[in-house]
Structures are given as structure tokens and as C-alpha cells.
Design a protein around this nucleic acid. Structure first.
Lengths: 336, 336
DNA sequence: ATGAAAGCGCTAACAT
DNA sequence: ATGTTAGCGCTTTCAT
């Protein structure tokens, strides 16, 4: 009874065990037509008995399909990972792909080295598709991906490439309008905004949504750009209070930054929402950890991730795809 | 000039271009000895010129090594993904592996189906190693992994398997002692605790650290088990206030639960830290989003992840490994 | 130090 | 409907 760790069964073992040829086993495994019921049954039984699992390397060598897709993060690392939303993408994408028996490889292309690795990986044909997360318009990675000829979709639009790279996204513009209108409706008159980086869709589109509601009342002085971090939000809030002391509301483009803004307001002795109303964006886990809890815009992130994967799979199947924009919900809590 | 998307160069192309045989190219690529300088140079140049990238599937077919490792999440999905700490693991592990030109595949084994998929994946030989995250002692997955014969390490100890599965972890016990001693040193006398699930190391060991400091003063009434969620922390805090109304401090086993506890205390009209001091654990992104900001125990998570990967690589190289326990830091903020 | 050649496990084209 | 076979790109043994 030695040699317990016996060799992995191959398709040949299954063929022998089921009394048919390798070819037929393969046909059964891949769901091809033209297989008799008897053969199919025999094969299925043999697979179960032998504990056969397909060798993907061999399959891939033959078909040049890998069964895995890469999620590429092109964010300067920390920022994205600080973002609690990111986990949702990861979870949903993993599960969606798993259902199709595909696997998710994670790669970080934050710097030159990372980008090169991704490029080499793709050019090596190690993945069937690419799922871009928070990729910027000018990112050199985009060219590499194009050159590699691997289908790509983006979770959130890639600014400037909307017509080239299919994407699914929450309606940033609409969501920003929603909460801005709400603030106006509450009687707020001097409303400021803290934006994300303007080379990201969330940075740009939320700002545009904001200004589309306020028109000329959205003045430059009332708008401060920041960077999606809590510290950035805090600094931006201080700046805003400085330049617009009579501010009575602020729309902050992410919950994390809004948490920073709350700290700054508290430090400045402003009461929220009495003196200043604060609106966030994301409805992330942060939103209920602050005091007061944040009124915010909920992104249907799980759905966004789901749709992104759906797009990618459609692309792999060579079906036509259209961008998907999903609407957001206003979640009213205590900060407004 | 048609056919732009020309075929990927293979090792044969490199051989032709450099005027040596396939075998020699392979030897150069894999850093074997017995290669003349001239040959090496010629091959390197040909690789650069042709843009050759190794076909992993072919290599894997031959060597039965895959160059990828799986990170298996065996948490009932949401809980872990809610945890901002998790992102750190992912980032560090991805980068560490990338340096060795290995890639990280993410799999979720939260339910039966997920476990089966992981098992099949491993039995199929699709990964060289396994990186376990938040795996419980009784998890049937453990057997599957053992059966698959794939090396495994854990990020955080697997309770009950400490001697079988190598791990790297923060010093949960010591960290809990640190903050408990601190609370005592601040003159707090009636200290309660909200724990994580007791089948997790963080749940159990932090509780043990707590009781090791308080001795018999750590009574059952003052200890409430919870589940690492914010809502859970809030409920636990209410319970605690109910049964121990004169509580003057509470150690909460995670920042996220502590955020919930703060809400409950606020709702109950207790001032923090004046009436009740609150200590957290993790120093996650939540810790500075709350008001007051949390005094907490910082886990060197990046380091933990790094060490976990190091252990796994050592294991793959068939070197001996020892568990790694990394010490924590007390971060004093405003909640105590 | 290098070349030649076998073969890893699979799929798909071809033959029947 | 099924069997036979070539070959995907690589590593490695065996010769030399």
C-alpha cells in the first residue's frame, strides 16, 4: 500500500475505465454533440470513479484559451485598497467567474514594473480577458493591453476611452445630481463640494452632476479638489471653511473623504447637520461608522461588478456589448 | 503588411533567431549552468528582438508546476470583505508573488460549491500552493487541501492546526494584553469586552489576552461574544450596558465592532471616553473615521502578509519553516 | 557546452 | 457516433 500519492488520472485513464476512446471522453467533457447516451454515462461514471480533473495546462496548450482572466488594478496601490468598495468588486467578480469555471488572477500595475509584468503576462497569452479597475485615460497600460490583443472591459468608465473599452458603472453624474438636489431641497443655499481626482470618472462626473444642478452658483471658490483619502477630505474641508466661512452644506465625492470632512468640521466647531450639512458618496462601510452617520449616494457596486463580468464574458463569446450605467440611490441619514 | 497580429513567438523562433538549439534556449531561460557566454548573449538578444514570452501552459504541462498560488477565503463572504484589513493582505501578497513571477488566484470557499471548486482546482494541480485566509479549524476544506497534497500556509493561525499548517500572525494575545493593561493603567476598574467569534484566532486569543490581565475580574457577565460586524458590535454594546450598567471601559476585538459600540454608547447617552473608555483592535481605516477616534491595537498586517508569502515560498522550496508571530503596537487616540 | 528527441495531457481534424 | 492521430510549446534526458 505504498505510493499513496498516486499519479493524477489523465483522460487516458478515464478512457480505459469507461471503455471508450480519448476522443469520446473529450467530447463528453466539452459537451460536444454526437455522443451516445451510453458513452456519456460510462464516461461520467469513470470520471467520478477515477477522480479525474482536467489538466488545464494541457487544454490551454491545445486551445490557447486559459480559463482565467486578470483583474488589473492600475491605481497607485494604497488609494484603491483603502477603498472599502474594492472588496465588493473582487468578491462579485470572483464568484461570477467561478460559476463559469474561470478564475480570477489579481495583478497590480501601479508602477512601471507592475505594468511591465501585466504586459508580459498578457502577451504571454496567460489570460483570456482583462478586467480593468480604476484605470486612467493616459495609462500606458492601455496601449499594452491593446497590443496584446486581449479583450478588456472596465469597471467604471475609462475617461476618454468610453467608446473603445466597454464598461459598467454607477451613474456618477446622476447620483451627484440626486444628492445636490436634495441639499437644495432642504433649503441649503451655500453649497460647496470636495471632489475626487478629476482624471477619474468619479472625480469628474460627480463634479459635473453637482454643477449641473447648481448652475452658476457652483463657483470655483466653493469647489476643492482632493484625492479620495480621509486626510485629503479633512484638508479640503479646512480649505473650504477658510474660503467660504458661511458654507451651509458640502457634497463630498466619497464617504471616506466625508469622514475627514466631518473631523475638520468638528474641529472647527461647526455642528453637523445644523450648521453644515454633509453629503457623501458610495454608501461604503464608513458611512455608518461616522457620527453623525452620513447621508450618501449608494452605488449598486455588486451589480456593477456583475455587469462588468457579464460584459467581459460577452466579449469573449464575441457578442456585441454596450456600456452599462446603473442608477444610484440616495440614502438619507443624520448628516443632512 | 497584413497579418499584423502575427503569431506569438515560441522557443523555436528564439532558437532560430539566435542560431542555437531549443534546448540551449531553454537552459538560458531557466538559468541552468553549462551555457557558454556567447550562447547566452545570443539567446538574450533573440528574446528581446522577437518579444518572446514563455508559454506557461507548455511549461506547466512539462514541469507540473504552475507558477500560481491560490488565496482561499473560507469566510462566509461578507464578513471578511467588510473588513478593510483584507485588502492589505491581497495587495502585499500579490506584490510579493509578482516579484517571484508568480501570480495570485483568488478563490472563495464560503459555501459548499465554493469549497468543491477549490478542491477540484487544487486536485487538478492548477496551483503550486495555497494561502489560507481566515480558515476555521473544522473547515472541511482543510481535508481537501491535505488530500490534494498542495502546500498550504495560513495568514493568521488555523485554530487547532497550529502545528500542521504554518502561519504568520499578529500577536493577538499580546495585543489584547497591551490595551487591557493600558485601560487598567488609566484607572478603569469595570472593564468589559466584546469578542469576535471564538472559533477564530482573533476571537479566542484576544479574549485570552484580556482575561490574562484581568484575572478573576474578567467575569462572564462582562464578556459578550459578537461577530466582527458593526451591527454586531452595536448590539453587543447594548447588551453589555444592560447587564453591567456601571461599566467604565470596554475592549472591543475589532475597530469595526468598536464603531458599532460607539454608536450604542452615544445612543445610551454615555460619553466616550469620560464615562466609558473604548479600545479597538486592528487600527483599520475605520479607527480614524469614528468620533472620538479610536484608541486601538495596530496589527502589522503588511508584515504579516509578507511573512505568510515568505513561508509559502520556503515551503515550495522544501525548506523548513516556523510559525511567525509579530508584535503589535498600541495606538492611543481619543476614545480612552 | 550543445543538439536531438521524447513526451507531458489535451483537443480537433480526419477517417470510418 | 466513435476511434485514430497530429501537434500545441516546453523541459530534460541522452548522446556527443
Amino acid at each position: 500500500m505504498k505510493n499513496l500519492a498516486r499519479k493524477r488520472p489523465t483522460i487516458n485513464d478515464v478512457a480505459t475505465a469507461s471503455g471508450v476512446s480519448r476522443g469520446t471522453v473529450s467530447r463528453v467533457l466539452n459537451g460536444h454533440a454526437n455522443v451516445s447516451l451510453a458513452a456519456e454515462l460510462a464516461v461520467r461514471r469513470a470520471v467520478a470513479e477515477t477522480g479525474y480533473v482536467v489538466n488545464r495546462a494541457a487544454r490551454s496548450l491545445k486551445t490557447s484559451r486559459t480559463g482565467s482572466i486578470v483583474m488589473v488594478l492600475s491605481e497607485p496601490q494604497e488609494r484603491l485598497f483603502e477603498d472599502p468598495n474594492f472588496s465588493v468588486l473582487l468578491r462579485v467578480a470572483t464568484n461570477q467567474l467561478a460559476e463559469r469555471d474561470m478564475s480570477l488572477v489579481l495583478m497590480i500595475a501601479g508602477d512601471r514594473g507592475g505594468r511591465d509584468r501585466v504586459a508580459r503576462y498578457l502577451r504571454g497569452g496567460h489570460a483570456d480577458g482583462t478586467l480593468l479597475v480604476s484605470t486612467h485615460a493616459g495609462d500606458p497600460l492601455l496601449e499594452e493591453i491593446e497590443r496584446a490583443g486581449v479583450p478588456a472591459v472596465a469597471c467604471g468608465a475609462v475617461l476618454g476611452r468610453e467608446s473603445v473599452i466597454p464598461y459598467a458603472t454607477a451613474d456618477d453624474h446622476g447620483g451627484a445630481q440626486q444628492i445636490t438636489e436634495y441639499l437644495v431641497g432642504q433649503g441649503r443655499r451655500r453649497i460647496g463640494m470636495i471632489t475626487g481626482p478629476l482624471d477619474t470618472p468619479g472625480g469628474l462626473l460627480r463634479l459635473e452632476g453637482f454643477t449641473s444642478v447648481l448652475g452658476r452658483k457652483a463657483t470655483k471658490r466653493r469647489i476643492v479638489n482632493s484625492d479620495y483619502t480621509q486626510a485629503g477630505g479633512e484638508a479640503a474641508m479646512r480649505e473650504l471653511l477658510d474660503s467660504v466661512p458661511d458654507l451651509d452644506a458640502v457634497f463630498v465625492a466619497s464617504d471616506l473623504m466625508a469622514a475627514g470632512a466631518l473631523q475638520a468640521l468638528h474641529a472647527a466647531g461647526r455642528r453637523v447637520p445644523d450648521d453644515v450639512a454633509v453629503g457623501g458618496f458610495d454608501d461604503s462601510i464608513i458611512a455608518t461608522a461616522t457620527r453623525p452617520m452620513l447621508t450618501t449616494v449608494r452605488q449598486p457596486l455588486a451589480k456593477v461588478a456583475e455587469e462588468t463580468v457579464r460584459l467581459l464574458i460577452a466579449l469573449l463569446d464575441e457578442r456585441d456589448v454596450e456600456p452599462v450605467v446603473l442608477s444610484t440611490d440616495l440614502i438619507v441619514r443624520d448628516s443632512t
